[in-house]
Amino acid sequence: MRFQLTSEQGALRGAMRGALRRTAGAGSWGPVAPRGGAADGHSPAPLGGAAEPGASPPRLDRELWRTLGELGFFSLRLPEADGGAGLGLAEAVLVFEEAGRALVPGPLVATHLAAGEVPGAAEGEVVVAAADGRLVEWLQEADVVRPGAEGAVPMKSVDPLTPLHRVPAPARTDPVAVLLTAAEQLGTAGRACELAVQHARAREQFGQPIGAFQAVKHLCAQMLVRVEVARAAVYAAAVTAERADIAAARLLADEAAVRGARDCLQVHGGMGFTWECEVHLLLKRAWVRSERGGGGTESEELLAADLMA
């Protein structure tokens, strides 16, 4: 079985990457500036704490959301008769990978899954929030909230661009949501690898690029290996749509994103923690995504059950 992209799939990925780059360049959002960060200018407490009273949550860019709707981001898998592109899960994975690479904020997965059911969601006119495991992202900015988010309470998020609420009882995890999350993680991991290599080539120390030093070479090489292994798993899961394959892809993509962003921080040194650099945002977003759907534990248990069967 071949997993190479078709020419149409490659064109789709390239078009989405270019469109997101142009949108960021237009000033509606961008990967470097603290887009809607904490009100006091400091990064918030780690995931899990209660939200501070009176804290100002970030606001979702509605212009960006409508642009995504015009691009067909949310209606990609809808039949052509219903105004969609009539494409499949493999193509959806490609566009979500690009969204993860570009750090696009907002409840992308929830709105994409609601297209065709919630009027206006496919066009980007309506923002949809849904409980994923114990978390709900962007609840206060949502126009429509799916069942399961009742009783959600605000909490502080490690990612200043992803406001979170916690629900008292875990919601059912949708396998497609897990796969699309893995695709976002894959995009973030790929971007972290690119940034690390670029910096290792440009930054000089002791009269030579830091990429010439063996320790930095090893970090970059390990990042690339994790990205490509995760890519193969995510693309394969998009073809088979088997729950076990999706669980494996999720675990590999989480590892590639979190470890890759941490290693990228190491390559950048102290610069990586500043607002002038996007690396810390890659890590924070990867941390938040890794908690969706109950975290990796659910995927590990599913894989264990599949092996025992």
Rank of each mutant, 00 (worst) to 15 (best):
D159N: 14
A200W: 02
A249S: 05
V145Y: 02
A233G: 01
A92T: 08
L87A: 11
A152P: 13
A241N: 08
L252V: 04
V178I: 08
Q140Y: 01
A11R: 12
E80I: 15
V258R: 01
L282F: 15
D132Y: 06
W65K: 05
A121H: 06
R35V: 09
E300G: 03
E278S: 08
L87Y: 09
A221I: 05
A237E: 01
A256K: 00
W287Y: 07
A90H: 09
F73P: 01
L76P: 03
L251S: 00
Q205N: 05
Q266F: 10
S56V: 15
Q214I: 08
Q208W: 05
E117S: 10
D61S: 15
G269R: 06
A248E: 13
A232S: 14
S7C: 01
G18C: 07
P209R: 04
V227G: 04
V234R: 00
L265K: 00
G100W: 06
R35P: 03
A26C: 12
V267E: 01
Y235D: 00
L219C: 02
A33S: 14
A230H: 07
M1K: 11
L224S: 13
G270A: 14
A122W: 08
P168H: 13
E70L: 09
V109R: 05
G69S: 07
G294T: 11
L139V: 13
V104F: 09
R243N: 09
L164S: 03
R250E: 02
G36D: 02
R134V: 14
G54M: 11
H280N: 04
G272Y: 01
G190T: 05
A90P: 12
E298M: 13
A183L: 10
R59C: 07
A90F: 08
A202L: 15
A247C: 10
V239L: 11
E98W: 12
S290Q: 03
L252E: 10
V216L: 06
C220R: 04
Q205D: 05
Q208V: 11
V126W: 02
E276N: 15
F74N: 12
P57A: 10
Y235L: 13
G36V: 03
P53C: 12
A230M: 04
R172Y: 12
R21L: 13
G36M: 04
G294V: 09
A212W: 08
A15E: 15
G148L: 12
G207I: 00
M16H: 05
Y235T: 03
G296Y: 00
V197P: 01
L179E: 02
T162Y: 08
V109L: 11
A248L: 12
A304S: 13
P119K: 10
A33T: 13
G84A: 13
A81M: 11
V153F: 07
A90T: 10
F96M: 04
V126H: 03
A110V: 09
P175V: 02
E117I: 07
P31D: 05
A257Y: 00
H42N: 09
A215P: 01
A152V: 13
L281I: 04
L302V: 09
L224V: 07
E123M: 01
L68H: 08
F3C: 06
F96H: 06
Q214S: 14
R250S: 06
A202N: 14
E80A: 15
V227C: 10
S299V: 01
R17I: 02
V197A: 10
A192V: 04
G54E: 12
G124R: 00
G10W: 08
E298A: 14
L302Q: 11
L47E: 06
W138E: 02
R146G: 07
D263V: 02
G211T: 06
G293H: 03
